[in-house]
């Protein structure tokens, strides 16, 4: 019973939105529903934030190893939250200076802006930059060609990598611009690394990606139907009381 009503809600909403895709007067209902979702997600922060607080407080009160870091997380969290919600240090909107809170919350020189500019942004960018190291270690380990598939992966990756850098000009730029067999239309220079990279991207990568996307579309359709028809109802939780 606890699952029946949600299943009905889910099914009706889903099938109605599938139908409205074909009715011009209601075709916007899907976008409106998704904009409401953003509001729900904003309120859901109360649940997530509450959970974060609970986990960190538990660590501190149980004096688990590393509880000091939990305290640091909490302090950073509360400072940022207070400063952002109260718009500390934010000047009012130039057009309406008598309204003290009319400025943008991310206005330059506000405390929240400082946290964003000097903590949040550099840390995100640095985590992103770590990928340069990770991608090299992944390449180094994965391309120890153990089977045919890995060998293909390795060879193609090397060709594309070289083709995208100056090394391609240095290594294969000397391939002559003449036709191999009379008027066949293939030149020696077509096999230089740069052109080879382009050929690989256009003629081999694109069909692969297309087939993956076609498969994904059918997978999405099937998953959506299973959810709407109630065939897969695991996301709703259980029928019984725990």
């Amino acid at each position: 019973m606890k699952r029946t009503i949600p299943l009905l809600i889910s099914a009706i909403t889903g099938f109605v939105l599938i139908g409205t895709a074909f009715i011009p007067l209601f075709v916007d209902w899907g976008n409106i529903a998704m904009s409401w979702f953003n509001l729900l997600a904003a309120f859901a922060f109360i649940l997530g934030g509450g959970n974060l607080l609970k986990m960190q407080l538990q660590k501190i009160s149980a004096q688990q190893p590393g509880w000091g870091y939990a305290a640091v997380t909490l302090i950073a969290f509360f400072i940022t939250l207070f400063v952002g919600l109260a718009k500390v240090g934010v000047h009012p909107n130039v057009k309406f200076p008598e309204f003290a809170w009319s400025g943008d919350y991310l206005q330059e020189d506000g405390v929240f802006w400082w946290l964003f500019e000097y903590i949040f942004t550099p840390l995100s960018a640095t985590m992103f930059a770590l990928l340069a190291f990770y991608i090299s270690s992944a390449a180094f380990r994965a391309f120890r060609a153990k089977n045919t598939e890995a060998t293909i992966l390795l060879i193609i990756a090397v060709i594309i990598l070289l083709g995208r850098t100056y090394a391609s000009v240095w290594l294969t730029g000397w391939f002559p611009d003449e036709f191999i067999i009379g008027e066949s239309g293939i030149k020696y220079s077509d096999f230089n690394l740069q052109n080879l990279s382009e050929i690989i991207m256009e003629d081999f990568t694109t069909p692969g990606m297309r087939a993956i996307k076609i498969g994904i579309a059918l997978g999405v359709a099937s998953t959506s139907l299973k959810v709407l028809l109630g065939v897969d109802r695991s996301y709703l939780g259980s029928d019984q009381e725990a």
Partner: peptide, 22 residues
């Protein structure tokens, strides 16, 4: 995401229940 946490909790709880290990 908070909503993913909520849904995942319901899901895992149900799974443990149906496996007989609440």
């Amino acid at each position: 995401r908070s909503l993913v946490m909520t849904t995942a909790r319901d899901t895992v709880e149900a799974a443990y229940l149906s496996a007989g290990r609440p």
